[in-house]
Computed example of a mutant assay.
Amino acid sequence: MALSGKLTKKLVENLGAGRHGDGSGLYLVVDPSGARRWIVRVVVKGQKNKKGAWLRTDFGLGGADVVTLNQARERALEYRRMAKQGLNPRFNARQKVPTFEEVAQQVHIDRMPTWKNAKHGQQWINTLRDYAFPKIGRMPIDSIDQPEVMMCLAPIWTEKHETAKRLSQRIKTVLDVAKSKGFRSGENPVTAIKDAQALPKVKAKVKHHKAMAWRDVPAFYADLKSRNAMAAKALMFTCLTGSRTGEVLGMRWDEVDLEERVWTCPEARMKAGEEHRVPLTDEMLAIIAPLQAMQSDYVFEGQKRHKPLSNMAMLMLLRRMKVEGVTVHGFRSTFRDWASEVANVPRGVAEMSLAHTVGSNVERAYARSDLLDKRRVLMERWSQFVAANGDKIIRIA
């Protein structure tokens, strides 16, 4: 039978900062930051403090995100019973320790607002689900040490090294959070394993996106220009802007200023998390201006109304064109090579055109211009080069 009190589940979730009583010494404490935790105030029978008064003490029962209202009431009752018997709960209470999976799931929920997008958040928990939960998911969080972490990491450390590194970071985060909530103590075993170099060194091979040689782009672009598919138009625009796939496919009309000839990609879709302005050339405008007639939310609309093209649309087009050894992302590298070898522009202008972070934090603090005018000149030259064969239809396949 559930214990009763003044608080409800809804109140626990929504009460503002302060100390809120449930009755019988149980309180919900809400910090200004929004963090919520339980405490119980008891008087230990027969024990007095240094001033000779009865020993009245507050004991933490855990965070409200981990400990439910009913669980808090049950623990508070246990503490009061011990206090009445003259037992100090600090030394006699048995706190229920959550499992690794329980803490991990809660960490995932707590951090949802911080994920760049839902996909990244899902990838975070999926890594733990696939490689950690089957081995340590049901274990109490305070019983996980180096051998248990090694059970998760060692089998994939060399074969799937990047995945294993992400897994170790995520296990470390879960264990750190558990320690902050009072469920663990001591050094994080992930840190200890790293410091001891218990896992072999793996020399990661840098994998670059396969790119088209810049000399081949005009002929390829002429072929694209002869096609009517939306994927072809999106790929043409991607080639000209040097933008990433997600930036282009997520492009909305409210981001485009045709009068100022600028596309402003919001920080939410940028890899560096900073807003990026792209100067629009005549050739770029010739691609997107006719698409206004579709009256869609997105510039490059997919098969569903007011929905963008699929992430795979441009890559599948490359395959249908039988263009081997090239990725969509690789056109960024193609543009960068051309900017160095042909345009011979300053490094900062070329890197900023690709929305790369340039310079140290201090340098960026003083150099706040995004060099839009200089980048506009560069992108106009690139557009003229790419569209040089615009009136010739050169079929690649």
Rank of each mutant, 00 (worst) to 15 (best):
L3P: 00
T8M: 09
H20A: 11
H20I: 11
V29Q: 04
P32L: 06
L55G: 04
F59T: 12
G62K: 11
G62R: 11
D65Y: 10
N70S: 15
A72N: 12
R81A: 13
M82Y: 02
M82R: 10
K84F: 01
V97K: 09
P98T: 07
V103Y: 06
R111T: 02
N126H: 08
A132H: 00
I136H: 07
D142T: 02
D142M: 02
M151I: 07
L153N: 11
K160N: 10
E162Q: 13
K165G: 03
S180L: 11
K181Q: 14
R184Q: 10
I193C: 10
I193T: 07
A196F: 04
Q197W: 08
V217D: 04
Y221M: 14
Y221K: 02
D223E: 13
A234C: 12
T238M: 04
L240T: 04
G242E: 02
G246N: 13
R252M: 14
R252Q: 15
A268P: 00
A272N: 15
E275G: 00
E275P: 00
H276P: 05
M284F: 01
A289H: 04
P290M: 06
Q295N: 15
A313H: 02
M314N: 05
M316I: 09
L318S: 03
T334S: 10
F335N: 04
A339M: 03
E341K: 06
L354Q: 08
V358L: 08
S360D: 07
S360Q: 01
N361I: 00
R364S: 05
A365S: 13
Y366L: 09
D373H: 08
R376E: 07
S383A: 15
S383I: 02
A388L: 03
I394K: 08
